[in-house]
Simulated scan of single mutants.
Amino acid sequence: MQQVYETMYILRPELGEEQIEQAINKYQNLLREQGAEHIEIQHRGKRRLAYEINRHRDGIYVQMNYQGPGTMIAPLERSMRLSEEVIRYLTIKQEVTDAIPESSEPAEE
């Protein structure tokens, strides 16, 4: 069953542009190998963190939206947890509402 997910992760701020692209491609390819479809990547750039994480005050934010089976999340998060370039990550399952809202009767004046 296809679910819709969003993963936001934060990369170390001292990474170069080439290293950032390699990290993004690595996680995108990992998702593809696990059966993900409709992968959308949003590179949000370097931002100030709300609080210090591992002595970092800034981070490079990347957001991925994708569809696929729930079994693909564990390998993705394991890879991020073991990576030294990722300082934080979060995956959420999004609610998909395909139902068409019922139209109510027009109000009489």
Rank of each mutant, 00 (worst) to 15 (best):
L82I: 13
E40T: 12
Y66T: 02
E33N: 08
G16A: 10
L90F: 09
Y5D: 05
K46M: 09
S104M: 13
D98R: 15
S83L: 08
E102T: 10
R78D: 11
P101Y: 12
R47T: 02
E37G: 07
E109C: 08
G16M: 10
I100D: 08
Q2V: 06
P106D: 14
A74E: 12
V62A: 11
P75G: 07
L30T: 00
H56V: 05
S103M: 14
N25Y: 04
Y27V: 05
E105I: 11
R55I: 03
H56I: 01
L30K: 00
L76K: 00
P13L: 14
G16L: 11
P13N: 12
H43F: 12
T97I: 15
S103C: 03
Q63E: 15
S79Q: 10
T71S: 13
M80N: 01
S83E: 08
I53K: 08
E33Y: 06
Q42A: 08
L31H: 03
L49K: 05
G59N: 11
S104T: 12
E77H: 01
R57G: 04
L30C: 00
R88K: 14
H38C: 04
R78H: 09
S83M: 11
Y66M: 04
I73V: 15
E52C: 03
A23G: 03
A50C: 05
N65Q: 15
R47I: 09
Q34A: 15
E21I: 02
Q19M: 14
G68N: 10
Y61D: 06
H38R: 10
T71G: 09
E105M: 13
Y51N: 04
E85G: 01
I41R: 11
H43G: 04
M80P: 00
E52I: 12
S83Y: 07
N29F: 08
K26F: 08
R44P: 00
R44I: 12
R81Q: 04
I53D: 07
E17Q: 14
L76G: 00
Q42P: 00
A23E: 14
A50F: 10
N25D: 10
T7Y: 03
I92R: 05
L76H: 01
Q19G: 03
M64Y: 06
M72Y: 05
G45M: 03
L11M: 15
R12L: 07
G45I: 05
E108L: 11
A107M: 12
L31D: 02
T91W: 00
R47K: 15
E77S: 03
N54P: 01
L15T: 01
L82P: 06
R57Q: 12
E105V: 09
P106M: 14
I73A: 01
S104N: 12
I20M: 13
Q42E: 13
L15Y: 06
I53Q: 08
E33A: 09
A23S: 14
Q94V: 07
K26T: 09
Y61R: 05
R57W: 06
N54W: 04
G68E: 06
Q34S: 09
Q34N: 12
E6K: 09
E14A: 13
K26C: 00
N25R: 08
I100M: 10
A107F: 12
I39G: 01
G16C: 10
L15C: 03
E52Y: 03
Q63G: 06
R32N: 10
L30N: 00
E77P: 06
R57E: 12
E95D: 12
R47L: 09
E85D: 15
A36D: 04
V4Y: 08
G59C: 11
P75I: 03
